[in-house]
Nucleic acid binder design. Structure first.
Lengths: 118, 118
DNA sequence: CCTACAATTCAATGATCATTGAAATGAGGA
DNA sequence: TCCTCATTTCAATGATCATTGAATTGTAGG
């Protein structure tokens, strides 16, 4: 991931409503949620949620698809993963031992990895 | 890490000069760099770099210490680690298998972990 | 105590961003 | 085709942020 794109993603996540939307959509999983349902869940106006959804889409954090009259948004797990990788490259550069413990604490890594002894 | 603090950190990293400063200081390691040296490296005015350093400090991304007439800044690895953990909780919630590969790709995890068979 | 130096603070300016409500687009169903 | 619903677009407003240069604080050496 390029630095410019990472900055766009960080900016997207730095806004309260947008961060709530992302967390909501991550929870919702691949099924996603319609724009209107998102607006209701985070309690903002349709036009405002549309503004933020566009921003998140542009930042590669969510992805839309049309379904009948609704537009369904879901989390872009690849984008989120790339952002984490970018951040880790900076954080861990030369210091992998610093970050690894945090990952286990975040329950993102099994303490008994499948790829052990590779 | 609380959501509010995470947003502050994301906002800090979303700005070009600030992101460059963080990457610079991560590279510099625990020794850190004087404010003036940072200003020279990223090519901004002393007052401007001071503004951004303050913001990064407030966001928990860097930490200052005085040394003679200089103030030395270094990356706050704990803060960076906590931010990654926050992001991973959202990204990986219920989907640990999605993120783990990215970590290895980012060279943040040894493919032969020390904690194997724990 | 005076000077020099490193860094910060301050006030002012322009730039970018979030929010709002009204108008427009686009997709079905009668 | 006409109507309705879901969403987006648009223009305008206030709020927040980045940058600049001058003034200030704090540290050390002569």
């Amino acid at each position: 991931m390029e630095e410019r794109q990472a900055r766009t993603a960080f900016a997207a996540l730095s806004q309260e409503t947008r961060l709530r939307i992302v967390r909501l959509l991550v929870q919702a999983g691949p099924e996603g949620m319609a724009a209107g349902a998102v607006a209701e869940a985070v309690e903002v106006s349709p036009s405002n949620v549309s503004f933020h959804l566009k921003d998140l889409e542009h930042a590669g954090m969510i992805v839309p698809r049309r379904e009948a009259r609704s537009i369904i948004y879901s989390a872009d797990f690849t984008g989120l993963r790339d952002l984490i990788a970018f951040l880790m490259k900076d954080c861990c550069a030369g210091h992998p031992e610093i970050c690894a413990p945090a990952l286990i604490a975040a329950q993102c890594l099994p303490s008994k990895p499948k790829k052990a002894r590779a």
